[in-house]
Design a protein around this nucleic acid. Structure first.
Length: 499
RNA sequence: GGCCCGGUGGUGCAGUGGUUAGCACGGUGGCCUUUCAAGCCGCAAACACGGGUUCAAUUCCCGUCCGGGCUACCA
């Protein structure tokens, strides 16, 4: 039955930090794939490292996914609540001699402490700890416990030495698998060390828990960052030892900072939540992220989510690391601020107005139709949601001020107070309040006074919205209404004089 | 250090054993225009380098360089 073959994928973050853009992109690819294939997406929290795990961060990760609009069909599952499964898997491996007990002190049998290269430290992850004393070379010295006799093992058990469980990697041969992105892969088993499955505290390591869970949850496609590519052979070995068929692996390229090094804090905002706070539209962020390491082919890059889902395929995933390009992200945001229907945008603008306390009791909240017209008028000039409450503030509240640069640019002319006072009078006398009437009244005044219409237009704009950059004047006047325009014109006079 | 992956304008992606090497962002010039955007039109800008293989390499192979990943009782 093919309905039984529907793909099952998962996003499996570890709560050691917030949801960062790399994780978000991985989640997005899984989600797009699942939706495209009509499959199932699960969420699994990989919290088996009690040292680094911060339970309180889980909510933030979920919030980030929700903001992005990535919904999961199952979960979240917590590995910390599934420990018996891993224990059982370890027991089976021990029983079949595919694993063995190790009594070494952590890392004591290898060459030495961290012999990592300078570049490896950069991620700024944890404390550098060990100093540059240790040997620069580190060989994969096999763990001596691999060959312990039953008697020796029993002796150690009697002594109560803590033990970890390690996988017994086959002596020779090669391990192969096919990666949907990187193609056929082949690794000499001799290159793989006897990795730890179960720590001495009884908790599983990533290698064990990820495989045990992916088997148990019937995951068909493992779509994850390419940083996991090198460890995949270990997992393939585990699948075999556990008698399970491995899933299809698809490793997606990493996201780098502008300097082509791993994206990190010093490259600026890397958490999804910071983009939410900044006033980006989730769909814009999704569109941007989708194109990092994936190409739909074709010329257009502005792809609504439904199109992304339609077009997504693992075949289009690139093997080259991608650089996070902030300017392009902003471009996408302006696209999503301007192209979709106003109705789609309204909820976001409403939320933004509420966020800064400009919603309650406003015309925007009282008159939905007016609100829609105002947003439609303002949005062509916005780049962020926050623009609605910053430069477009005067559309929603009388409490605004005059931008200094605007005053200097358009309030130079000495006659302005006099002219604007006359304009206020003329406008107040208008029987009908519409674009053409306002336009005619202003131009008539300009003609009569012998000044260019532009002078009045620009000065008036600053007077009624406080900004040099704003929507076309007469449309703005119509939205604001006669009373407000006249009042604001009069209110501005003293400020112009005192310029 | 060892093992592995990658390398097309500044950036994200297309693409091909023979192409005027395509699109988008950004940059730049112009049009439009009451401001500023948007929009439209144009311009500059790339196959990392060195060897091969081949009639022909951006494309296939090797090396170098550069970048990245893994090499944890982290994920």
């Amino acid at each position: 039955m093919d309905h039984a073959q529907k793909p099952r994928v998962r996003f499996a973050p570890s709560p050691t930090g917030y949801l960062h853009v790399g994780g978000a992109r991985t989640a997005l690819f899984n989600w797009l794939f699942a939706r495209h294939e009509g499959g199932t997406m699960l969420l699994r929290i990989e919290d088996t490292d009690t040292e680094r795990n911060r339970p309180e961060l889980v909510e933030g990760i979920l919030a980030g996914l929700r903001w992005l609009g990535i919904e999961w069909d199952e979960g979240p599952y917590f590995q910390s609540q599934r420990l018996p499964l891993y224990q059982a898997a370890a027991d089976r491996l021990l029983a079949s001699d595919a694993a063995f007990s190790c009594y070494c002190k952590p890392a004591s049998y290898t060459g030495e402490g961290p012999a990592m290269k300078a570049a490896g430290e950069e991620a700024g992850k944890q404390e550098g700890e060990g100093d540059d004393e240790g040997p620069k070379t580190k060989r994969n010295i096999p763990c001596p416990c691999r060959h312990l006799s039953p008697a020796e093992r029993a002796a150690r058990e009697r002594e109560g030495i803590p033990r970890a469980i390690r996988f017994r990697v086959p002596e020779g041969g090669v391990t192969r698998f096919e990666d949907a992105v990187f193609g056929p892969r082949e690794v000499q088993n001799a290159e793989i060390e006897d990795f730890v499955l179960l720590r001495s505290n009884g908790l599983p390591t990533y290698q064990l828990s990820v495989v045990a869970d992916d088997i148990d949850m019937r995951i068909t496609h493992v779509i994850r960052g390419a940083d996991h590519l090198s460890n995949t052979p270990k997992q393939v070995l585990l699948y075999a030892a556990l008698g399970a068929e491995p899933p299809i692996f698809a490793h997606v390229p990493l996201i780098l900072g502008p300097d082509r090094t791993r994206l990190s804090k010093r490259h600026g905002a890397t958490s999804v939540s910071s983009y939410a706070e900044e006033g980006l539209l989730p769909e814009a962020f999704r569109n941007f992220l989708a194109l990092l390491g994936w190409s739909p082919g074709g010329d257009s890059e502005y792809l609504r989510t439904r199109e992304l889902i339609e077009k997504f395929s693992l075949a289009g995933v690139s093997r080259t690391n991608a650089v996070f390009d902030r300017p392009k992200l902003e471009w996408f945001n302006t696209q999503y601020l301007q192209k979709p229907s106003v109705e789609e945008l309204l909820p976001y603008v409403e939320a933004e107005l509420k966020r800064v306390g400009m919603w309650e009791g406003s015309q925007a909240s009282a008159e939905p139709a007016w609100f829609a017209r105002a947003v439609d008028l303002i949005r062509p000039r916005t780049r962020f949601l926050s623009d609605f409450t910053t430069w477009a503030r005067a559309f929603f509240t009388d409490d605004f001020d005059y931008e200094q640069a605007a005053r200097e640019k358009f309030w130079k002319e000495d006659r302005l107070p006099e002219l604007l006072a006359k304009l206020a009078e003329a406008l107040a006398a208008l029987p009908d309040w519409n674009h053409d009437a306002c336009d005619a009244a202003l131009r008539a005044l300009a003609g009569a006074e012998g000044v260019k219409a532009g002078l009045l237009i620009n000065a008036t704009r600053v007077a009624i919205v406080g900004r040099a950059v704003a929507p076309p004047l007469f449309e703005t006047m119509v939205i604001l209404g006669k009373d407000r325009v006249v009042a604001r014109l009069k209110r501005a006079l003293p400020s112009i004089t005192s310029r």
